[in-house]
Design a protein around this nucleic acid. Structure first.
Length: 572
DNA sequence: AGCATATGCGCG
DNA sequence: AAAGCGCGCATATGCT
């Protein structure tokens, strides 16, 4: 991730015959040489190229194969991801044609990540990406010029390096997989859901549905149908507007507890039951596909078995290989700490330093309980205006005016249609044409009250989005830097000797030294040989400290880790 | 039958 | 139907 020293880039692409071509550059990013590469894994692994920054159109097109061949890459520039950042960033003054490269926006995988319709696009059609040596170099040159001429090239270089390192981590995480004990998972399913009965429906699940039908006196009720269940509840005199857990939980009726119980079991069965296990866990590994930059804020998305939504209750199935263990580490209150830093709020930083941030707020006398402090802080970052949360926000605003002004300003900017940016310069999208039209129409004095109120609601909605964007996005940048530093440190560990009983499933590159195995926004799991666990834990801690200093320099904020070494990812 | 949308819940 | 952000996935349901 170090970006201070500018080592040359080497650009990889395929020529029209399908051969791999490498373009060398000097420190001014000018082409200095071209050669045909016959054995890419060997080429990349040359010691003289150990610090090369490899430039390619999309890490997913290049790195999995290299990893499969046992070649790890130290750093790269993922042009697809950096393009998405630069074409949007408010720090970029002259985009040198980046925004005109509309084809990039048709990248099918990006559309999948955003849930947009695919129309006629083929999933495997990546022709929209630059692919020939000339195209790839031209894109690299555009990006280089855009960064060099930007308002803050240091931040953008950092962001591109971090995002690209994330692309490497994502590929490595997929290759490594999460060590998953299918038997432990099955035992847990059996305990909660019971034995599989007729049609594969677990017995306790079927019984739970029967109880609901009996209490509601509705023998034909399909409990899985919200509409049907709602009618049955109304017939029983429970006049709820929906069947969501939150709504039902507030009611008092003998049917409520059985319904909630059924929902809980049903969720486990449908989302992470036997079917999930057989689809997603093979040879002791769960291999989700991570999508760096898949979320508008810069957070990662994931696909393949709902990796980022694995219920906490299933963590017991995450079991280290024999002779190995886990480092499980998460950052306490990552987002409010990021907020304190970007706002330069020393008072909030002081409340956070060396302790639970919410307790720090309590100790400062701002709010009476930790629960209050937490709900108030979340409300401030999400834009709550009513309820318990909204009620406490003004108190927080008084105590931490600098931090609160930062998010309030972000909200105001969003409401008036503006763009906001993260600490490193990832900017949110401009509002849609539809949104601007609605605002413009409502600003006409002749507009109906309904239209004005609807437009006001849309504006507020966007304000809550931009308010959260600056915090969530900066937190994601911290996490990227954390992982980027960590993967470099772990790569320097000496590999343990090959042993006959060693699990082969982590793949050839990662399986003999500590490696990242899981990532979830503010949490990582490192899979490590037992005798390297302490050293790996130190690496996790020092990587966090380095991430903090890379991003925020000497500003006195800390990001303390909850870290434990354990054979299972379950909390004790 | 296949696609789009709604509902609900898991995670941060 | 969360009061308040960002996601993915399963199921039900409606539309074509």
């Amino acid at each position: 991730m170090a970006t201070a020293e500018q080592s040359p880039w080497v650009i990889l692409a395929r020529n029209s015959e399908g051969a791999i071509v490498s373009l060398s550059t000097n420190t001014d990013a000018a082409r200095t040489g071209t050669e045909i590469v016959t054995d890419l894994a060997a080429y990349v692994a040359e010691p003289a190229r150990s610090r090369t920054r490899w430039v390619w159109n999309d890490t997913r097109n290049w790195y999995p194969e290299l990893l499969g061949a046992g070649a790890r890459v130290d750093r790269c520039q993922d042009l697809r991801l950096s393009h998405a950042i630069l074409r949007q960033s408010a720090l970029v003054r002259d985009d040198h044609g980046l925004r005109a490269q509309a084809a990039w926006e048709n990248d099918p995988t990006l559309q999948i990540a955003r849930g947009e319709a695919l129309f006629a696009l083929d999933h495997d059609d990546v022709s929209a990406l630059p692919s020939t040596p000339d195209e790839v170099f031209a894109e690299f040159a555009r990006q280089y010029a855009a960064v060099a001429g930007s308002r803050d090239s240091h931040r953008l270089r950092l962001l591109i390096a971090a995002e690209s390192a994330g692309a490497l981590v994502a590929a490595e995480l997929h290759e490594a997989g999460v060590p998953w004990d299918a038997n432990a998972h099955r035992e847990l399913l059996h305990d909660v859901l019971g034995a599989r009965g007729a049609g594969g429906i677990p017995q306790k699940l079927a019984q739970a549905a029967d109880v609901v039908r009996e209490i509601l006196d509705a023998p034909d009720l399909r409990v899985d149908s919200p509409a049907h269940l709602l009618k049955a509840l109304h017939r029983a005199g429970v006049m709820v507007p929906s069947t969501s857990r939150w709504v039902l939980g507030a009611m008092e009726h003998p049917s409520i507890a059985p319904i909630l119980h059924y929902k809980k079991l049903s969720r486990l069965h449908t989302a992470n039951g036997e079917a999930w296990l057989s689809e997603w866990v093979h040879d002791g590994r769960y291999r989700p596909t991570y999508l760096p930059g898949g979320v508008v804020t810069g957070r990662w998305a994931a696909t393949g078995g709902g990796a980022l939504q694995i219920p906490r209750s299933l963590r017991g199935a995450v079991r280290a290989d024999p002779g190995w263990t886990f480092i499980v580490a998460d950052v306490a209150q990552l987002e409010p700490r990021a907020l304190a830093a970007i706002a330069g709020d020393n008072k909030l930083a002081t409340a956070a330093r060396g302790r639970d941030l919410y307790s720090g707020i309590v100790e400062s006398g701002t709010l009476p309980t930790r629960a209050d402090a937490k709900v108030a802080m979340l409300g401030a970052m999400y834009g709550a205006t009513t309820g318990d949360s909204g009620r406490l926000v003004p108190t927080l605003r008084k105590a931490y005016p600098k931090a609160m002004k930062y998010v309030d300003d972000a909200a105001q900017e969003g409401e008036r249609g503006g763009v906001v940016s993260t600490w490193l310069g990832r900017s949110c999208e401009v509002p849609s044409g539809r949104w601007r039209e609605e605002q413009a129409e409502a600003s006409d004095p002749a507009a109906s009250a309904a239209a004005q109120s609807a437009a006001r609601g849309r504006a507020r909605e966007r304000g809550r989005f931009t308010r959260n964007f600056v915090v969530q996005g900066t937190a994601a940048e911290w996490a990227l830097c954390w992982m980027a530093q960590l993967r470099t440190k772990l790569a320097a560990f000496s590999p343990i000797p090959e042993t006959a009983q060693r699990a082969e499933s982590s793949g050839p590159t990662m399986s003999r030294r500590p490696h990242l195995a899981f990532f979830l926004h503010d949490e990582i799991i490192v899979h490590t040989p037992l005798d390297q666990a302490e050293a790996a834990a130190d690496a996790v801690r020092s990587a966090a400290a380095e991430a903090t200093s890379i991003l925020f320099g000497s500003f006195p904020i800390d990001f303390p880790l909850d870290l434990r070494i354990a054979m299972s990812a379950a909390k004790d």
